[in-house]
Design a protein around this nucleic acid. Sequence first.
DNA 1: CCACGGTGGTAGA
DNA 2: TCTACCACCGTGG
Length: 169
Amino acid sequence: MKTALRNLVLLPIATTDGVFTAHYSESGLAAINFPSRQSGTATPKPSALSARVASWHRATTAALRRAVAGEAPGELPPLDLSAGTEFQRAVWRAMLKIRLGQARSYGEIAQSIGKPKAVRAVGGACGANPIPVLVPCHRVIAANQKLGGFSADMDWKRKLLEREGVAIS
DNA sequence: CCACGGTGGTAGA
DNA sequence: TCTACCACCGTGG
C-alpha cells in the first residue's frame, strides 16, 4: 500500500462490542479499525469537524451499529477506496453486493469480477479491505463451506456470520 | 483425513 | 526485475 499522505480524521464509534475507530479522508470513509485494547482515540472538538465529516460520521455510526448487530446497515456514507489497487477495488465492490445472510466463496468472487483463476489473490484482497464489517469481507468463505481466514480475530468473522444467520460447517 | 500442484496479485529487496 | 509469500481450490492418496 503506498503511503499517500491524505489528511485523515479519526473518530471513535462505540458499539455493544467495543469502540471502533473510523478514518475519514477528503472524499469519505476511508477505513474502520476493530476495537483494540490499547488504542484510545482522542475525540476532536466538535467545532473542529467539518459539517460534511460530521454527517458522514453519523451515517457510519448508525450503519456500523446495525451491521455489528447482524442487521442491514442501511445507507452508507461515501466510501473512499482509493487506497486500493484496481483489482482490490473490484473485489471490494463485489463484496458490497453480497446481501445480508448470504455468503460467497473466494472462487465465486473471482468469477464475478471476470478473473476466475485469481482465487488466491481474492483472499489477499479481502485481507486488505480497509472497511471491514461495512464492506462485508466476512461473507467470503472457503468453497467447502468452511470459514477460511480473517485478518483480524477469526472470532469476529464467526460472530458476524452467526448474527446474520449464516451457517458454517 | 492429508499432500500437492496450479494458480494471480502484492510487497519487498 | 525476481522472489516469496497467500483469508484458495480441485484432485488424488
